[in-house]
């Protein structure tokens, strides 16, 4: 079980959180203008990185807030967490 450092509450067990998938996927600004291919990309294509992955988590059984996290998917080591809206930090 991961010990996840919520940027608002500090380290808490993974069971308090909900995983939210790949981070930094911006909702299209003008959805009506999107082609089917662009919709497919937005909705379904994922980087599925083997290495450092930027991902969303929600502290659903805590402060209930979303935040982002960098984690190495080859070791599950957590590198850092940061607030939604902040740019992705350099991998440490």
């Amino acid at each position: 079980m991961l010990l996840i450092p919520c940027p608002f509450c500090g380290p808490r067990p993974e069971l308090e959180f909900r995983y939210g998938g790949q981070a930094h996927i911006a909702r299209p600004e003008n959805p009506a203008a999107l082609s089917d291919g662009e919709w497919a990309e937005f909705l379904y294509l994922r980087d599925n990185v083997r290495g450092v992955h930027a991902e969303r988590w929600r502290h659903i059984h805590g402060c209930a807030r979303f935040f982002n996290m960098l984690r190495d998917t080859t070791t599950d080591r957590i590198l850092t967490t940061y607030k939604t809206g902040e740019p992705r930090p350099e991998a440490v």
């Binding site: 995983y19 992955h53 080859t74």
Partner: peptide
Amino acid sequence: DAYTSYTQRGALH
């Protein structure tokens, strides 16, 4: 497990 990973192991819970 809830999250993507390539570790070929999972959590005890």
